[in-house]
Every structure is written in structure tokens, then in C-alpha cells.
């Protein structure tokens, strides 16, 4: 049993995009704040802090997670993935990211990180989604700029591309 006292800072350790990270947090510190302000991983955004907008969505131990509804202390020892870990290298975008750029699937980019994480997670398990499935998945996100269609188009294109590249590698 671990009981962390309210008024003290406690060390929190986890793996962030494959790297071990550590910081200190009071029990009440939200994971979104911990990522952004303790670790400097500011790619995860905060738009509502009550679970509705989806901007803060990340992946914790393979689960889509609203980081604004999660305490930093809760992810001790977990594996976290955020938007900073999506690109294959610093100067190259991944397939999904490229599809977003090609389709103008972002304008201000504030909602984008959360949407990318939901799609990245979903496409890994559902390589051939329909438009309706993507719309259902993304109904947990709000984008105020794009009107959504380009996002859906980007997701479908990325899924197709990922599927065909997988096929190529398995054919080879």
C-alpha cells in the first residue's frame, strides 16, 4: 500500500514514448499538467479539464486516456505515449501525420494531438476502418476549426496507406 500525503511532492516515474522519465508531483497534480509543466512535453494540450474536448488524450498502457482526468500519481510505472512520440524521426512525419498535412486536417492544431493519439491507437487494432467507425471514434474529440471532414479523410487515407505498406512488407 502506498499512501501519498496531500501536501508533499512525491516522485513519479514512468516511461514516456519509450524513455524513462521522472518528476515530482503532489497527489492532486493532473497528468496533463505533469506532462506539460514538469516534463516539458507540451504537445499534449488542455482544452476543458472535464473530459469532453479530447485535446489531452494520450495512451497509457495501451488505453486511450484523458490526461486531464488522470492523476500523475496514477501512472507510476506505466507506459505512456504522447504526440511527441509519433514521428519516426525528428525531421520526418509518420504516415498519419503526413496524411493530416496533405489533407489540411488541422488549422490551429490545438485539438490535433489528441485526435492523432486516438487514431494512432485505433488504427493499430482496426486496420480497415469505415468512415462511420472513424466518425464514432472521433466523436470523443472537439475540433472548432476544420469541420472534421478533412480529418476523417486523412484517417482513411492513412489507414489505407498503412495497410498497404504492411502488406508489402509481409509480401516481401
Amino acid at each position: 500500500m502506498t499512501r501519498l500525503k496531500a501536501d508533499a511532492r512525491h516522485s513519479v516515474r514512468f516511461s514516456l514514448n519509450g524513455k524513462l522519465v521522472e518528476g515530482e508531483a503532489e497527489p492532486r497534480m493532473l497528468l496533463s499538467d505533469f506532462l506539460r509543466h514538469q516534463l516539458g512535453a507540451t504537445g499534449t494540450h488542455v482544452g476543458c479539464e472535464h473530459g469532453v474536448c479530447g485535446a489531452c488524450t494520450i495512451i497509457v498502457d495501451g488505453m486511450l486516456t484523458r490526461s486531464c482526468l488522470t492523476l500523475a500519481a496514477q501512472v507510476e510505472g506505466c507506459e505512456l505515449r504522447t504526440v511527441e512520440g509519433l514521428a519516426p524521426s525528428a525531421d520526418r512525419l509518420g504516415v498519419l501525420q503526413q496524411a493530416f498535412r496533405r489533407n489540411h486536417a488541422l488549422q490551429c492544431g490545438f485539438c490535433t494531438a489528441g485526435i492523432l493519439m486516438s487514431l494512432d491507437h485505433y488504427l493499430a487494432g482496426n486496420p480497415t476502418p469505415t468512415e462511420a467507425e472513424i466518425r464514432d471514434l472521433l466523436s470523443g474529440h472537439i475540433c472548432r476549426c476544420t469541420g472534421y471532414t478533412p480529418i476523417i479523410q486523412a484517417a482513411l487515407e492513412a489507414a489505407a496507406e498503412l495497410a498497404s505498406s504492411k502488406k508489402e512488407t509481409s509480401d516481401a
Binding site: R3, L4, E26, P27, R28, A73
Partner: peptide
């Protein structure tokens, strides 16, 4: 959030 203890 307000302050609280956290028990895992």
C-alpha cells in the same frame, strides 16, 4: 483539484 491524500 483540491488537496487530498492518494492511496494506491
Amino acid at each position: 483539484p483540491p488537496a487530498f491524500d492518494y492511496l494506491r
